[in-house]
């Protein structure tokens, strides 16, 4: 499964990079969503893959059974998902706002900061 997981993360990253290189900023945003999914999977997979044993301590025991999943990457990924969402939401609002101001989603034509000059 490790190999398959790596393949999947690679495919997600490829799709994300391809989207982020597009002229349409909405596509860029799709890429951003994909890349945060890929990053979450990558962190999760680096912590080891343990099938179907959530890191819970059963009633009456002081510690979990020896073969439960690694809790640490799960905690990290949980945080990352939420922060990724914050980033997504803000980027979406930003895109919306720039469309309002500039009337386009074409990043090549968003030239407020660096106007077409002598180049």
């Amino acid at each position: 499964m490790e190999f398959l997981m790596a393949l999947m993360v690679g495919a997600l990253v490829s799709a994300a990079v391809y989207l982020m290189l597009a002229r349409d900023v909405l596509r860029f945003l799709f890429g951003l969503v994909l890349v945060s999914n890929a990053a979450n999977l990558l962190i999760f997979a680096s912590g080891g893959l343990t099938p179907e044993a959530p890191p819970l301590v059963p009633e009456g025991l002081k510690a979990p059974p020896p073969d439960v999943a690694n809790a640490l990457p799960q905690a990290l990924v949980l945080t990352a998902i939420v922060i990724g969402f914050g980033l997504f939401a803000f980027a979406l609002i930003l895109i919306y706002r720039s469309y309002q101001t500039m009337g386009t989603l074409d990043s090549d034509r968003m030239r407020l900061a660096e106007p077409e000059g002598r180049d």
Partner: peptide, 11 residues
């Protein structure tokens, strides 16, 4: 689904 399969229901 991957999270569920590998023991991370909360995630």
């Amino acid at each position: 689904l991957i999270f569920i399969m590998f023991g991370a229901p909360d995630v």
